[in-house]
Design a protein around this nucleic acid. Structure first.
Lengths: 139, 139
DNA sequence: CACCAACTCTAAAGTTACTTTAAGCATTGA
DNA sequence: TCAATGCTTAAAGTAACTTTAGAGTTGGTG
């Protein structure tokens, strides 16, 4: 299949596929006489693998490490579990931070309900000298 | 004060300050005879304002819009509220997505507990052909 | 006064994961 | 045959900085 077809099947852009090839994530496929890339089923599976990993917000270097296991199926997969656990704790960190961010921003939002002059806006004031001294996040 | 001092007070890097100046977020300060930047209190407050906005994960173009109100304190601040609300809903979206991501990845993680050969690893299999057909996120 | 460490300056390139642009062939259907 | 669509490449753009390189300045010590 050609690159556009592969892209449609994987739900990504053709440029993304070329990008992955350039980055060494996706094997370079055979070419037609005129230079068009022609892909096999295996390419589709590799690409889907990459896209699913990305959907979990894994970095490409992370994905690269996981792809090694697809290249050598006899490898023990213990490292896979470790990588997934790392990604999970990464997501956890993000989630916690985002939660705090939202709470803080909501608190900030309550400070100004009406429309008055900017110089009297408690939100703007707070964005200079934030709330409490326990505002650790603001460092 | 010089740039290093300002950076220390605001808790950021000197390069970040120069970057903000180049981006037009922070006013260019006076210079010493030898070309060193010399900052005033107002610069510190502006910088803190920017950093606090960034701590709420606002984009620089967002911050730029908020800075207008600091330049003209007579402006009505209704737009500020709107901007904060937008940022809140942005955080909400992120939070929801991240939640789903984590749940999905946790589910994936349970599929493989022991260390076996990569070709038999259910995690790796699932990253090619994911879980259920209701896996909307994977498009 | 000489000297050195620490600080500052600029411009440019690097980072991540792509996306966009430009300009030129190939293929396909009417 | 001709236009629309699809493919090719290399290079530049995106966000928000960070890093690097090379050079001048300042402040304290001997």
């Amino acid at each position: 299949m050609k690159i556009g077809e592969l892209a449609a099947l994987a739900g990504c852009e053709t440029e993304t596929i070329r990008f992955y090839e350039k980055q060494g994530l996706l094997a370079a496929p055979a070419r037609t006489a005129s230079g068009y890339r022609t892909y096999q089923q295996r390419h589709l599976e590799d690409l889907q693998f990459i896209r699913h990993c990305r959907a979990f917000d894994m970095s490409l270097s992370f994905v690269r490490q996981l792809l090694i296991f697809r290249e050598d199926p006899t490898q023990p997969c213990g490292r896979v579990n470790t990588l997934i656990d790392e990604q999970l704790s990464h997501l956890d960190t993000q989630l916690t931070q985002l939660h705090q961010l939202k709470a803080d921003l909501q608190a900030l939002r309550t400070l100004c309900q009406n429309d008055h002059q900017a110089k009297d806006c408690e939100i703007l004031k707070n964005l200079v000298h934030p709330c409490a001294s326990d505002c650790e996040r603001h460092r």
